[in-house]
Design a protein around this nucleic acid. Structure first.
Length: 540
DNA sequence: TCAGCTCCCACGTTTGAAGCGC
DNA sequence: AGCGCTTCAAACGTGGGAGCTG
């Protein structure tokens, strides 16, 4: 079923797609095996297909809890960590070197606002921030290293500072984002940018979130407080609301906790309105009916994607399998809420907006691959930089010829990867944000787990088969996509694009980069050569 | 007027240096 | 001198609230 549809919207590069039915996703063992579909073997390592890598989302159940409530992530100027952190377990060839990196792409082109206890579309998204990648500080490392313990991305930080110098991932507030994990084979024998470049992209839908500068949904606040060790200070004792303790101890030293609580509830009546149904109790269980707040069921109560209840569908479900540009603004709800940004966004023609939103593409980037001597453990960030010249990111051949990018190079990563299946409204904006060949189909598969480690809380996913072409709607759980070991340069344009050999340069996997200039500390930041001019806009 | 943002605060966790004993 | 353990303080991360801004 899904397979057929997936195939229908992808080009002929996908060798095989596993069917991932929803029951599998919700099975007792929440794991997905996206493997089982060995495709085009790597020329260098014919038996070590990167698409066989299994990726596990650590603390998946916790992620699901947040997802069900509509995950929010705080972004600050100084940068804020994600919580839950993004951890993964991968099954790899022990001897092969891999680079693990994460990027965060816009999930759609909308700006949101929290209104009536739900996330509503509030207008068009602001121009995306420069695309940055968070490269795991251990990268590159052999598969044995990655499999030895949990691979944690907990130091990844999110910021809304457009001029952030620390290499944090820059996001816009009140926008919806989707983190993606990329695994790039970095073996010395596998030249980046060569036709042997192999990579995998894993998308865990439950890690999607809306960036905020302060929490909007009290349920999310409570979940964070209850689960984030750093927020223990806000946990209530047995007596309840942690704020009571604080206020009672300081602001209201002479007031009983009950009195303080009353005062709090009174002063937070606006919250009470939002949080009808006992949200203020702080007990997630009590909030289970949250999505039906005010007696208004979510847009898609039967959706298998819980987040859809909170992230309103931005697309007509009927267009799920359309990969063509769709500019339906009619869904921008006017719910009596302040329609901020709608007017401002209208100042620019939509066409212009779409075409000039290069940041939606994670873009080309170059980075020095650390050789063995380069052992810094700080996260390496890849900064996005819009390039004024050059062809589209999707045309890597042109990139190769660009003198402006004189180093190994990443190609673009498409934003708005689709994360849905039929009936699941959590859809990315449109394939048209992606450049012509930068749409990585995301293909779900039934799962199996990795044997070595306990995975009671892990969802296991394996790399899907090779795909190129139009975005594919994965199941609500997660998805992954892999490049074949062999990629045409054009098709590599949507790689996490780590390294790109210069033409004629046989193998420069970890060439020194930046070619000159100091490495920024603490993070190693690299500019991303980003180009949107090659973006292919098509109208259905 | 108000939604969103920034700054500052108190609190808890993490981390690493220092001290101590064997 | 080396090792392991404990202690402690600084650094870090957290959400909340006040105030500012557009």
């Amino acid at each position: 079923m899904l397979q057929e549809k997936v195939s229908a919207v992808t080009d002929g590069c996908m060798s095989r797609v596993q069917d991932a039915s929803q029951p599998d996703l919700l099975s007792e063992e929440p794991r997905l095996d996206l493997s089982t579909a060995p495709t085009i073997p790597s020329a260098s390592e014919p038996n070590q297909n990167i698409e066989n890598i299994k990726v596990v989302l650590h603390e998946r159940e916790l992620w699901k809890k947040f997802h069900e409530a509509g995950t929010e992530m705080i972004i600050t100027k100084a940068g804020r960590r994600m919580f839950p952190s993004y951890k993964n377990l991968t099954g790899m060839n022990p001897k092969t070197k891999y680079i693990l990196l994460i990027d965060v792409v816009a999930a759609d082109d909308h700006r949101y606002k929290f209104c009536d206890n739900k996330w509503m579309v509030a207008g068009k998204a602001e121009p995306a921030m420069p695309g940055r990648l968070y490269v795991h500080p251990d990268s590159p490392a052999a598969g044995a290293h990655w499999m030895r313990q949990l691979v944690s991305f907990q130091k990844l930080k999110l910021t809304n500072n457009h001029l952030d110098p620390f290499g944090h991932i820059i996001l816009n507030s009140m926008h919806k984002y989707q983190p993606r994990l990329h695994i790039v084979k970095a073996d010395e024998n596998n030249a980046f940018g060569s036709k042997n470049t192999a990579y995998c992209t894993h998308v865990f839908q439950e890690t999607a979130f809306i960036s905020v500068t302060s929490y909007q949904n009290h349920k999310i606040t409570q979940l964070k407080i209850e689960n984030n060790p750093f927020a223990k200070g806000f946990r209530g004792s047995e007596e309840g609301d942690p704020r009571v303790s604080r206020l009672q101890g300081k602001e209201y030293p002479g007031m009983s906790k009950n009195s303080v609580r009353q005062r709090l509830i009174s002063s937070h009546s606006h919250l009470a309105g939002k949080l009808a149904g006992g949200v203020l109790t702080g007990h997630p269980q009590v909030l289970s009916s949250y999505q039906y707040e005010a007696g208004v069921p979510s847009a898609n109560p039967d959706s298998q994607d819980p987040i859809s209840s909170h992230f309103p569908p931005s697309r007509d479900p009927g267009l799920l399998y359309h990969c063509f540009k769709h500019r339906d603004n009619s869904r921008h709800l006017d719910l009596g809420c302040k329609r901020s940004y709608l007017e401002t966004s209208s100042a620019v023609s939509e066409e212009h907006y779409f075409r000039s939103a290069p940041s939606y593409e994670s873009s080309l980037l170059s980075r020095s691959y650390r050789n063995e001597a380069f052992s810094a453990r700080d996260a390496c960030m890849y900064g996005g930089m819009e390039t004024e010249s050059g062809s589209g990111a999707g045309d890597l051949s042109d990139v190769n010829n660009s003198s402006a990018i004189n180093c190994n190079m990443w190609a673009t990563m498409q934003p708005y990867a689709r994360y849905t299946v039929e009936g699941v409204p959590y859809q990315p904006f449109t394939a048209h944000y992606a450049s012509t060949a930068t749409v990585t189909p995301v293909v779900p598969h039934p799962a199996s787990t990795m044997a070595p480690r306990p995975q009671s809380d892990l969802g296991v996913y394996n790399s899907a088969s090779v795909q190129r072409g139009l975005p594919v709607i994965p199941p609500p759980s997660s998805s992954s996509s892999c490049s074949p070991a062999t990629l045409a340069s054009r098709d590599r344009s949507d790689l996490p694009a780590l390294y790109q050999s210069k033409p004629g340069s046989p193998l420069r996997p970890f060439s020194a980069y930046p070619p000159q200039g100091p490495v920024r500390d603490p993070s190693l930041q690299y500019q991303v050569g980003l180009n949107s001019t090659g973006t292919h806009w098509t109208d259905s």
